[in-house]
Amino acid sequence: MTTIKAFIEVQAAEMVFNTRKGSFHALSKIDLQVQRGEFITLIGHSGCGKSTLLNLIAGLLRPTSGVLLCDNREISEPGPERAVVFQNHSLLPWLSCFENVYLGVESVFGKREFKPKLIERTEAALELVGMSHATHKRPHEISGGMKQRIGIARALAMQPKVLLMDEPFGALDALTRAHLQDELLKIVAATQSTVVMVTHDVDEAVLLSDRIVMMSNGPAATIGEILSVDLPRPRKRVELAESATYIAARKAVIDFLYTRHAKDSRSEVLA
């Protein structure tokens, strides 16, 4: 029987940081496989290493031990095949929305494509996130939700194999967040992107994910459970509100988070 090779593989990854107070064991024995086109969310309490794991996949950090692979190649540094969208949009304030996206396009494709093709890629990415109307505006002239759209457009314009998102909607109001979640579902369906996303929001995780990776509390955090979300796509949040599968998945994540937090709190008291 043929075994399907995972697109992203994390094998026995450990992460220890050296601090002024000594070593801090952030992640312990992380094993994770992500298939091509899969949407994975990482969830857990603050300090459980979600962003650290994402940064390892991005190549922004090197593991203390263990191996990470993307498309069967070792992840040793950042690369254009793995685009990152942070909670802070990280747009350059002196550039227009178009120029912010174009900068990323040029860095990846500039050596092998002429300017008209680079412009075409930039315009297509802006259209994909519904921001064509803001082409000539600068970041201070648009809302927080629009800034995040531009950040997503910049990432997608580079045609990455993997889209890595670190709480991209965490700083937005509830209505804007819900709207961008719905837009992200459409974008991922259109691009067939592989996505790994950090979130604190249980409903966001269930709405977006194929699987939810639930992290134990740190230090030496690890993967506690992985929940498959067996909901058909395309997904519509209004219809999901009464879905038994959605409700069960939501309860399973909340139960894990509450049980894990209560268990760790008791351990601290006993210690």
Rank of each mutant, 00 (worst) to 15 (best):
M1C: 08
I8P: 13
E9L: 08
E9Q: 12
E9G: 11
Q11A: 12
V16Q: 10
T19Y: 09
R20H: 15
R20L: 14
L27I: 12
S28Y: 13
R36T: 11
L42R: 06
G44E: 08
S46V: 05
G47S: 07
K50Q: 03
T52Q: 04
L53W: 11
L56I: 11
G59M: 04
G66P: 10
L68N: 15
L68G: 07
C70L: 09
C70D: 04
D71K: 08
S76H: 13
P78A: 01
V84Y: 09
V85R: 00
Q87I: 13
H89Q: 12
H89E: 05
H89Y: 15
S96M: 05
S96K: 07
S96D: 06
L103P: 08
L103I: 02
G104S: 04
E106K: 15
R112L: 02
K117F: 09
T122I: 00
T122C: 02
E123A: 12
L126F: 01
L126T: 02
E127V: 00
V129C: 01
V129Q: 00
M131D: 01
S132N: 11
H133N: 13
A134N: 00
K137S: 12
R138W: 04
H140G: 10
E141P: 10
G145V: 03
G145F: 02
R154M: 08
A155G: 00
A155H: 04
K161D: 12
D166R: 05
F169C: 14
A171F: 02
A171W: 06
T176K: 12
R177C: 03
R177Q: 03
R177T: 10
A178F: 07
H179V: 14
E183Y: 03
L185H: 09
A190P: 02
T191L: 02
V195H: 01
V195N: 01
V195P: 01
V196H: 05
V196Q: 03
M197C: 04
H200Q: 13
A205E: 05
L207C: 06
S209F: 02
I212Y: 02
V213K: 12
M214H: 06
N217K: 09
N217M: 07
G218I: 06
G218T: 06
G218E: 11
A221V: 09
I223G: 07
V229S: 12
P232S: 02
P234W: 12
K236S: 11
R237Y: 05
V238Q: 11
A241R: 15
A244L: 12
T245L: 09
T245A: 13
Y246G: 03
A248D: 11
A248G: 03
V253N: 11
I254T: 07
I254V: 14
I254G: 06
F256P: 09
L257N: 05
E268Q: 14
V269N: 13
L270F: 08
A271G: 14
